[in-house]
C-alpha cells in the first residue's frame, strides 16, 4: 500500500464576511495516496480553490486537521508553510501566472532559485523540452500562446522535482483541444513518473480522466467514486 500524501480530518476553511461565517470548505475528511491522480470537481463557489490552496500550504486552515507530505501543517504559519511547499509542491494556476519580464527558461529557473535548488539548473531546459517547448525557451510570455504559456507553467512546477503537483483550473482559459493536451501531459506524468497530481476543474469530461474524482458542493464532499477509466 502506497504512502498517504495528504490526510484531512474535519478540514474546514471559514471566511468571516460582514459578521457572517462563510464555510468555504466545511469539515471534510479525505486522503490522497502517493501516485494518485485526483480531480476535484464542483460548481463555481463550491470550495475547490479553497481546498486546493490548503492542500498546497498556500493558506492556513481554520479548523480540523491536515497532514501534507507527512507533516502536520494544522497550526503552521506562512513562514513555516513556505518551507513545506518550497520545492515539494508544484503549482499551476488558471491564468498561467508567468512573470512577464522573464523568458520561458528564466521563469522555470526562477522556481529553482526560490526553491534553493539552482544546482538542478539543467532541469529547466529539460522540463521545457518535456512539455514540448524546447524551441521556445527564449520567448517571453507574451510571445507564447495560451496553451504554450500553460505548458511553461507546468515545466516551472515540475522543475524542482516536486512530490505533489497541484493545478487550479489549468484549462480554464484554453480551448478543448489545448485542454486535452494539458491533461495528456498530466496523465503521462502520473503514469510514467508516478507523480501525485490534484487538479480542480469545471470540465466533467476532463475531470473524469483522473484516477479519482472528488465532488464538492457548498464545501462538502457529496460523492466519492473511483473512476476505472485508466486502471
Amino acid at each position: 500500500m502506497a504512502d498517504i500524501i495528504i490526510n484531512a480530518k474535519k478540514l474546514t476553511k471559514t471566511y468571516r464576511l460582514f459578521a457572517e461565517d462563510v464555510h468555504a470548505v466545511n469539515g471534510i475528511d479525505f486522503s490522497i495516496e502517493q501516485g494518485e491522480f485526483v480531480s476535484i470537481m464542483g460548481a463555481s463557489g463550491s470550495g475547490k480553490t479553497t481546498l486546493l490552496d490548503m492542500i498546497g500550504c498556500l493558506d492556513r486552515i481554520s479548523s480540523g486537521r491536515l497532514e501534507v507530505l507527512g507533516r502536520d501543517v494544522t497550526t503552521l504559519r506562512e513562514t513555516e508553510l513556505v518551507k513545506v511547499r518550497r520545492g515539494n509542491i508544484g503549482f499551476i494556476f488558471q491564468d498561467f501566472s508567468l512573470i512577464s519580464s522573464l523568458t520561458a527558461l528564466e521563469n522555470v529557473e526562477l522556481a529553482l532559485y526560490f526553491a534553493r535548488s539552482l544546482p538542478k539548473k539543467n532541469n529547466a531546459q529539460k522540463m521545457l523540452e518535456k512539455v514540448g517547448l524546447g524551441k521556445r525557451i527564449r520567448h517571453l510570455p507574451r510571445q507564447l500562446s495560451g496553451g504554450e504559456q500553460q505548458r511553461v507553467a507546468i515545466a516551472r512546477a515540475l522543475a524542482t522535482e516536486p512530490r505533489l503537483l497541484l493545478a487550479d483550473e489549468p484549462t480554464g482559459h484554453l480551448d478543448s483541444d489545448r485542454s486535452q493536451e494539458i491533461f495528456d501531459v498530466f496523465n503521462t506524468l502520473n503514469r510514467e513518473d508516478g507523480l501525485t497530481i490534484v487538479v480542480t476543474t469545471h470540465n466533467q469530461k476532463l475531470g473524469l480522466q483522473a484516477g479519482r474524482a472528488i465532488f464538492l458542493q457548498d464545501g462538502c464532499i457529496v460523492s466519492k467514486e473511483r473512476s476505472n477509466l485508466f486502471n
Binding site: R85, F93, R116
Partner: peptide, 16 residues
C-alpha cells in the same frame, strides 16, 4: 500583486 503571490507559491520566502 499577482506575480508576487505566484513567486511565493513557487517557493519565495518573505525575505526573498
Amino acid at each position: 500583486t499577482q506575480e508576487i503571490g505566484v513567486m511565493k507559491a513557487i517557493g519565495a520566502s518573505r525575505l526573498d
